[in-house]
Design a protein around this nucleic acid. Structure first.
Length: 258
DNA sequence: ATTCTTACA
DNA sequence: TGTAAGGA
């Protein structure tokens, strides 16, 4: 019982140096009991270990998984919720590869900077709204991808926007649904601009002109959305001035002269 | 004999 | 989730 082998305990791969743990070792490292480890495994929260006869060998991924579970548990999540989250977690694995986010993909076609997030960091950002449904929706839209034991948001700007909306009281599910609708309209807008060039520019100049079109189209959309927001804010102002903006009407006077 | 599972509390 | 009993 007094074998204090902190690093050399258990079996380890001599070629890669990956540590492996037997049940008691892993449980001790994760700060849980063996019974709890078994409990998690029965519910699918922990992937099956490598079986060598009757001995179960766990590795570092199991350890990080257990630490994730513990962190989520301390944050108030239920075991069932964690199970759902981890299920979606696994389900999005191929999404990251599809987007080329886990490897060294240059992604020259996107100017958005990805953001890496730990699972608990993500849960903390959206304050208990990271349900399996929301996670699945975020993965489906392409906002979120999974890389190893971490999440990757495809756009810092969109992540910040989502965070701001949620903090303003908008449910995350509604934010995601809105994002889905915006995505559809954005696609339609991009189609308008690209079609414009495809039909009017000569084929050999098409690609280059499309790239030049990017900032122009963004400017047009930005201006149009800005003006449209003006119109809609004014149109609905009387509806929600009661609890949001008590008395501010003079600021929306001179908008645009059309 | 050790390690893990089953079953019971 | 702890513990005792049993299979390999």
């Amino acid at each position: 019982m007094s074998t204090d082998e902190t690093e050399g305990a258990g079996g380890r791969d001599t070629t890669t140096g990956k540590r492996e743990y037997r049940m008691a070792d892993l449980a001790r490292e994760a700060g849980i009991t063996v019974r709890t480890l078994r409990f998690y495994r029965e519910r699918g929260l922990v992937p099956p270990p490598r079986r060598e006869g009757r001995i179960a060998w766990y590795d570092g991924t199991h350890l990080t998984r257990l630490r994730t579970i513990t962190a989520l548990l301390e944050r108030g999540h239920t075991l069932g919720g964690i199970a759902d989250l981890l299920a979606a977690f696994e389900g999005g694995r191929d999404v990251a590869e599809l987007l080329g986010l886990d490897g060294a993909s240059p992604t020259p076609w996107s100017r958005e900077t990805p953001v890496r997030l730990g699972a608990e960091e993500l849960a903390d950002t959206f304050a208990g709204q990271v349900t399996a449904e929301n996670l699945a929706a975020a993965l489906d839209i392409g906002y979120l991808a999974v890389d190893g034991e971490e999440f990757v948001h495809v756009s810092r700007r969109l992540l910040d926007a989502s965070t701001e909306l949620v903090r303003a009281g908008v449910p995350l599910s509604a934010v995601l649904e809105a994002g889905r609708r915006v995505r559809a309209h954005a696609d339609a807008l991009a189609e308008i601009f690209t079609d414009l060039i495809r039909t009017h520019a000569r084929p050999e100049h098409t690609v280059r002109t499309l790239e030049q079109l990017r900032p122009v189209s963004q400017t047009v959309v930005d201006a149009e959305v800005s003006m449209a927001m003006d119109r809609h804010i004014r149109a609905n102002a009387d509806t929600w001035t009661q609890d949001t903006a008590p008395r501010e009407d003079a600021t929306h006077r001179g908008t645009t002269s059309t």
